[in-house]
Amino acid sequence: MTGSLEHMIIQAYADEEFNQQVGQFTVWINPATYTHEYGISHSDRQAPGSNGASPEFNKVCQETVAFELVFDATGVVPPPIPGTPIPKKGVTAPIDEFRQLAVTVNSDTHRPNFLRLIWAQLQFDCVLSKLSISYTLFRPDGTPLRARLAVSFTSFSSEVELAQEANLHSPDMTHLVTVLAGDTLPALCFRIYGSSQYYLGVAAFNRLPDFRRLRPGAQLVFPPLSGAAA
């Protein structure tokens, strides 16, 4: 219904393809703000004695999403699911439920669950990278009634998805390349591996006396990244 409150949902999956859902957590109070960070890593190619750097693209870094969750068991804030009673043990139970979903190591997969954040336009496949809990209100007996959870999530994509997104020649296979006029070893490495930083390893693998002067028609072997070029 238009105008109704839409709560953030955190779904948990046992597999990296996000097919086997094993749980779901509905946030009681939606975040007031959240940050979504992107990063690109560059290698510093500054030559000795030069006036400035010439950054060279290395890789696209993982995205991160961070926000703060407020848990309140005072009764002032109604539970996100109608009919759900206020926890008698304060915020301990819902926090344990969240930790079980996002932090605890799954006995079958031997790792914490994969997570999917869903809230309006935000859909983020990720893993929890950091959790910090601050308890701020208590009953006279010490039972915590309110807590703030600072959470950070790191994006996750399966190996298949990464390969499809990169749309590059597979770097884990051996490639045989015939040198054309104008080819340079750094440029060929970028074409094969997605980065030119491996040119010295490829030069050594092919026993090139001078990697700066490639002979047109020569054939070069580009080994898998797990091999000599790595």
Rank of each mutant, 00 (worst) to 15 (best):
I95T: 07
V76R: 12
P94K: 07
T92K: 12
V105Y: 02
F114Q: 00
A66H: 03
P80T: 06
L69R: 04
A73Q: 01
V91M: 02
A102N: 09
V103C: 12
P85S: 13
A73T: 11
V76N: 06
R111N: 11
V77D: 00
I86S: 07
T84H: 13
P85W: 13
G75R: 13
Q100W: 07
T104G: 00
H110P: 00
T74S: 08
T104R: 12
P87M: 14
F114N: 00
Q100R: 12
T74Y: 02
R116G: 00
G83F: 14
P82G: 05
P79R: 05
E68M: 05
G75F: 13
D96T: 07
T109I: 11
L117Y: 00
T74P: 04
A66G: 03
L69S: 06
P79W: 07
T84I: 07
W119H: 12
P87N: 13
P112W: 09
A102W: 03
V77Q: 04
T84G: 08
D72I: 12
I95R: 01
V77A: 06
K88T: 15
L115W: 00
D72H: 08
I86D: 03
T84C: 09
P85F: 14
A73G: 13
D72N: 15
G90D: 12
T74I: 04
T84F: 10
W119F: 11
L69C: 07
D96Q: 15
L101P: 06
I95N: 03
R116T: 06
A73F: 03
P79K: 04
P112L: 08
I81S: 14
I118M: 06
R116W: 01
G90W: 12
T92E: 11
P85I: 15
P94M: 09
P87G: 14
F67A: 00
R116C: 09
P78E: 10
N106D: 14
E68C: 10
V76T: 08
G75C: 10
I86K: 11
T104W: 08
L101S: 08
W119Y: 13
V77S: 02
K88Q: 15
Q100I: 05
V103F: 01
S107D: 10
I95W: 00
R99G: 10
A102M: 08
F71Q: 04
Q100F: 03
T109P: 01
T104A: 11
R111D: 09
Q100A: 15
F67Y: 09
H110D: 04
R111W: 03
P112A: 10
L115I: 02
L69K: 07
Q100N: 15
D96H: 12
S107K: 05
V70H: 09
P87K: 15
F71P: 03
R111H: 12
T84Y: 10
D72M: 13
T104H: 10
H110L: 03
F71M: 13
F71C: 07
P79Y: 05
L115H: 01
V91C: 14
R116S: 06
V76Y: 06
S107R: 01
P87T: 15
P79M: 13
L101A: 08
A73H: 02
I118R: 05
A102Q: 07
P85D: 11
T84W: 09
T84V: 08
V91P: 04
R111C: 06
D108H: 08
D72F: 09
R99K: 15
P87D: 09
